[in-house]
């Protein structure tokens, strides 16, 4: 099981974009470099020649500012965005849910939402029951699981979705800012849970804008800036 990337680049196509004068004068430092090719199509170089090797036991943390390419990198690893250049070799079963709230229906109850997720993953009745137990226990939502999601507060919603995404244990775990969730007591619990699944899944990759969090949890730390990855600590 491993993830190996060599000179991986990703150009995000924007179609034809008119650039304003203002944008040209104040070149910002948010996001990847924007460039236009000979056919007048504009792209963002979201990932710029990235190379790395992740092996079992690696708890990879990547931090960077808004628009630095964190989520794009995860989406490439998840197989959602195709590469523009370079190679990516992935071996192992990748976690499926990048977004915590994907497919959640406010008119279904908490329980129905859990079942919907497990069905999307093609789980058997028995596996579904395990997931339900796991998520119900961890979220501590109790009777609220039988109420529609629209009756939940934001905090309760994140409790549910966090409990749900962490109820599956894949070989390769990809996480996008799953850390800032819930109230204080839940945060503590969430941290412990994260550490637990970090150790149980073979390779975990987590991205966040918060370097402290990552430094505490991970043993392989990278910084991403304007689509370029640099190693901070190993």
């Amino acid at each position: 099981m491993h993830i190996i990337a060599k000179n991986l680049s990703l150009d995000y196509p924007l179609g034809s974009v008119k650039k304003s004068l203002l944008g040209k004068i104040f070149s910002g430092n948010v996001g990847g470099k924007i460039f236009t090719d000979e056919t007048e199509n504009t792209y963002i170089r979201a990932l710029d020649s990235i190379s790395f090797e992740f092996h079992p036991g690696d708890r990879v943390g990547i931090y960077g500012n808004n628009g630095s390419g964190k989520t794009t990198l995860l989406k490439v690893l998840a197989g959602i965005y195709p590469l523009s250049e370079g190679t990516l070799e992935m071996e192992g079963c990748v976690s499926s849910f990048l977004s915590m709230n994907l497919g959640m229906d406010p008119d279904l109850t908490g329980l129905e939402n859990i079942i919907f997720r497990t069905r999307l993953l093609g789980m058997s009745q028995k596996q579904t029951e395990t997931v339900i137990d796991c998520a119900a226990n961890f979220s501590e939502l109790g009777e609220y699981l039988d109420l529609p999601l629209r009756t939940y507060s934001n905090g309760m919603l994140t409790r549910l979705s966090f409990s749900l995404v962490t109820a599956f244990d894949p070989e390769i775990l990809l996480m996008d800012e799953w850390l800032s969730v819930g109230d204080e007591s839940f945060q503590e619990k969430a941290q412990i849970k994260l550490e637990e699944i970090f150790h149980s899944s073979s390779i975990s990759v987590i991205v966040s804008h918060n370097p402290n969090m990552i430094k505490r949890l991970c043993n392989k730390i990278f910084k991403i800036e304007v689509g370029q990855l640099s190693i901070v600590d190993e």
Binding site: K75, A78, G79, I80, V94, S96, F97, L98, S99, L102, G103
Partner: peptide, 8 residues
């Protein structure tokens, strides 16, 4: 689009 951008 939600699924396209989040599921492979």
């Amino acid at each position: 689009t939600d699924y396209i951008k989040n599921m492979a």
